[in-house]
Structures are given as C-alpha cells and as structure tokens.
Write a protein that binds this DNA or RNA. Structure first.
Lengths: 142, 142
DNA sequence: TTAATTTAGGATAATTTTGTCCGAAATAAA
DNA sequence: TTTATTTCGGACAAAATTATCCTAAATTAA
C-alpha cells in the first residue's frame, strides 16, 4: 500500500509529534531508535518531509527535528510528500490514462474504495495518532 | 497499490475472460498485445495464476490459455495468487506484528478502509469486468 | 517420425527501491 | 576561534522488482 519510505516517514513523524512540545527538538538517532527505522534512510525521508514544510529541522548541537502544528498535519500530506500522487490519482491497472470517460475495467469499483482511503488520510491528523501512542493505546515497535 | 506483476496479471485475465467462450484458447502473444503487457513477463505471471488453478494452459499448436469459470474468479483470488496476503493482512506502518490487542497508531483507522478494499475485491468477479470490456464500456489499452 | 507451434522454467539483465557511508555545512558552546 | 554536535547531500551498495532471453518440454499436424 505505502512504500517503505512512507512507512518509515509516517512512523517517524508520529514519534516526533509525541516529543514536540514547545518547540522541543528530537535528534535523528532518537527518532530512528523509537520508530524502528534505519537511521540513514530515515534521514533521507525526513529531508523530503522537511523540504515539503511538514517538519522543522535545525543543525548543530541542540538541533534536531520538530513539529509544531501536529493538529494540522494530515496523513495524506505525509503520504503525498513521500509517495506522490500515485495512490490518489494512478490507475488501479496501471494504464497511463484512465478516467470516467474512458475507464479501465476496474475504474468505477476502485473509485469508491479510493475515496474511502482518501477521506481517511485527509481526516486523520498527526496529533491524534501521537496522543494514542503517548497514552499507550498504540505502539510503534514490534 | 498493486504490484506491476499484479496489474499485468489482472489485465491479462480480463482479456482472456473476454475470449474464453466454449473452451477457446488464447495465445500468449495475443494476450500481451491486447492487454498492453510485456510478453515474457506476462508469461511468468500467467504461470503463477495457472499454478494457482485460476487458469488453464495447454502447450503446443492450438494451445494457449483459457478461463472457463470467469463468474467464479474474484479479483481477490488473482491479487492473492500474485501479491500474496500483504495487502490484506500486513500492517499499514510495516510492523511485523500488529493486531487489535497491540495495534500500530493507524491500525483502527486503516481497518475500515481495508475492509472496503477486501469486500470490493471479493465481490468483483472476472465475468462482469470482461462483459464491460466487450461491451465497450471500459478499456484495457491507453 | 519429423517439423512446427506454444507454454514452462531457468538464467540473466535492467530498473527501482531501499539502505549505507562519508564529507560538507551549520550551529552552539567552550 | 576552536571544538563538538548535528543535519544535509551526494556517492555508493544491496536488495527487490520488473523484464528479457533462451532452451526444454509438450502437443499437434503433416
């Protein structure tokens, strides 16, 4: 469903969100450890998320990554920043073009499902996921 | 969402279904041409589907591939034969284990969406897709 | 039996994705 | 200023996926 890069990215973002009270920064090593992702690869993904404006980063001692508006960051924005639009706009059967006027055989059946995915990702924000994680209702490492 | 192999496989199966009246066989070259897939790679995928019992194949002149129960072949059975269970059982965030008793932060939100996907793939059968294609309501090449 | 046709399957190649390594740049503190 | 720390970014490596090639095996027909 999501690429590995995206899975790493989402997990990292959720962890960062749990730690980002009052502009506090989290270091890459911490993030990788607590989100179960390889450090160097996570750095790449966080770079993309930072470039997309979903994350603040600062170099040097006392530097690190931080999120200050977790309530406004949707899962969709993260997925889009990493995996692009393929999940939201691409044809289920891989046709280069596919729309209601000249649909692939799965187009209509797929549409409803995709709308559901889209709604879910748009309406889910980092803050609620971070809250669940902090409260012990959910987990990042298994 | 689906792997390329799976996209090729579904397209090929739909085309074969449109041609499979009364035990008629379709040749690989035909299938590849009409479903817009690379021939040799499609051969691999069809091999897997044949091994899974979703498809009959016969060697030699007058040989080829055929489907005789398109009404009973669901999209899900095709996806499972090629991509396995990852889409239906894997954790959205890539955790090795993830269930309601110790869920990842996305587990519950993801569940509803996945159920929708599962239902759609289970309730959609080759026959109806082939019918749509034959009638000109949908297309395989673009 | 021989020849032609067609799938099966293994080896190999190309591409993409995933992941690592390392030096440069920035920043803060001593 | 120097040193330590940390992200940034490019090059590189490994693994998975996608795709091709070629020979063998099966089957049909001449």
């Amino acid at each position: 469903m999501f690429s590995k890069a995206c899975e790493h990215g989402i997990r990292a973002m959720i962890y960062i969100a749990t730690q980002s009270t009052a502009g506090r920064r989290v270091k890459l090593g911490d993030i990788a450890r607590h989100s179960g992702s390889p450090e160097a690869f996570t750095a790449k993904v966080l770079g993309a998320l930072s470039k997309a404006g979903l994350l603040e980063s600062l170099k040097g001692p006392a530097g690190g990554f931080g999120i200050d508006n977790a309530a406004k960051i949707s899962l969709k924005s993260i997925v889009q920043a990493i995996d692009g639009d393929r999940l939201f706009k691409g044809c289920a059967l891989g046709l280069l073009e596919c729309d209601a006027s000249k649909p692939c055989p799965m187009h209509h059946k797929f549409g409803a499902m995709r709308d559901g995915l889209n709604d879910m990702l748009e309406s889910t924000h980092l803050e609620e996921l971070a809250t669940g994680l902090k409260s012990g209702a959910s987990f990042l490492l298994r």
